[in-house]
Nucleic acid binder design. Structure first.
Lengths: 247, 247
DNA sequence: GCGACTTTGTGCCTGCGTTCACAAGTCGTT
DNA sequence: AACGACTTGTGAACGCAGGCACAAAGTCGC
């Protein structure tokens, strides 16, 4: 991690900022759809659910193009963020593990929306291999090296059972995949140069459980009785994601 | 958020720690299955993919029960973490939005595994209402108040399209739900006292895209050619999640 | 052309999270 | 009983992230 030293003149974008850029991007699209040609950091921050100072600082990291007194040009900012995130090109994705979840992901529209294209479905089960889903035939996991090379795949999505995750992950990496989105409940270990992000239902639920228990044991056990909640107590309408977001 | 002040003698567990406890719990189960009665912080940390010092400090926050010179009693630690996370009881969950993803979630085994039970499926579409999935009939979203009260639901899972997310979220909150797991690509705003966690495919992919682009533009464009990767370079086998984890 | 107003970009401070390194404590062996 | 090997728990240092507040910079109206 110190290995990947950022040259001084290099454009350094903090991880925390990178994690928020997609949110800003979505907010910008929302504003664009509403007809805004420009947006102030205040407006944009409200839609994105963050502090406006944080938003400005985030944008400043990518050499911001705001105009003082006016705000940000929505279209230009969309371009700027898209470029930074690498969304101006299309990324080919392999989806491995066509079970319950994998099947749903294969049909998930959100993939295509921002330049991600599932170009390969992969499984180990002979019964599933050959099956066609959304116009793509399921391939054998052992064909990964060829498939990854031929279809220029750089991102793999892992939706296998936990027990198979590490093995499949190794195969993906060996085949040349350098980014993995892991849905399996298993901590993957990968060589340097490969990025892994994990999405884990079970963990999220357990975190909610912790807070839920805390609420129950704390002050008001009758909290669930109040339909409107005792909410909106504080002056700022405080979007909850600030304290609850994954980042 | 300052509202929720932790009394000094209160057991304070930092958010970052809470987010890792589920990972430790899973690691402990793995070790238990392998026959370990005790585990050192080093072993446990390796399985969980974190630094051992961090693990020890995390465990110390919940009044740790390790024994110097020996390690941690696996069974006891499982109990300890389970209790802290509130997993000794069963949480009833409502799943709202029975589309592509919702359908998959309804059949997801991972829910039940740790005390979460889907006791209600909810949708707005009349065509889906009444349909039975995994033994549960899909209810009308307008029946939420009754359903939440009768079935003692405290956690809601949102799997609706983004456009409907805020409206449904409001209904969940009004019905008494105090924790929400949001799969929709929309920033929810909720009153104080309600926790929201979001899981967003699209965001995760875009973050990967950022790093992928960086890798491509940086030093070695031939990185994908090296099957073994230039990995395992550093002495510590560095599980990638340290730099890539959602936390 | 000028003044008042708006909004950005950022310096500074504060607090949290991570990591190192070590003292304190426990067990097994001699 | 004493010693050495091992492991936990934590004090301290460091770095990152968040937020306030303000100067710089630009726009709009007259």
């Amino acid at each position: 991690m110190t290995d990947q030293r950022p040259t001084v003149r290099d454009r350094v974008v903090p991880d925390a900022t990178v994690a928020r850029l997609p949110v800003y991007l979505r907010a910008l699209h929302t504003l664009a759809d509403e007809g805004h040609a420009t947006a102030s950091s205040e407006e944009l921050a409200a839609v994105a659910g963050v502090n406006s100072a944080k938003l400005r600082k985030d944008l400043s990291h990518l050499g911001s193009y705001g105009t003082r007194g006016v705000g940000y040009d929505v279209a230009m900012l969309v371009d700027q963020i898209s470029t930074t995130l690498g969304l101006t090109r299309c990324w080919n994705v392999a989806l491995v593990g066509i079970g319950n979840l994998g099947h749903a992901l294969a049909g998930y529209a959100g993939f295509a929306s921002r330049g991600f294209k599932i170009v390969a479905l992969v499984d180990r089960d002979p019964d599933r291999i050959g099956q066609v889903i959304n116009g793509i035939a399921v391939s054998d996991v052992d064909d990964l090296p060829r498939i990854v090379a031929e279809r220029r795949i750089s991102i793999g999505v892992l939706a296998t059972p936990a027990a198979a995750a590490q093995e499949v992950c190794d195969k993906l990496v060996a085949a040349g995949v350098t980014s993995i989105l892991n849905f399996a409940s298993h901590v993957l270990s990968v060589p340097d140069g490969v990025d892994v992000r994990k999405v884990d239902l079970s963990i999220e639920l357990q975190i909610l459980s912790f807070h839920e228990q805390r609420k129950a044991s704390r002050g008001a056990p009758s909290l669930t009785r109040l339909p409107g909640g005792r909410g909106a107590a504080g002056p700022p309408p405080s979007t909850a994601d600030e304290k609850a977001a994954n980042g």
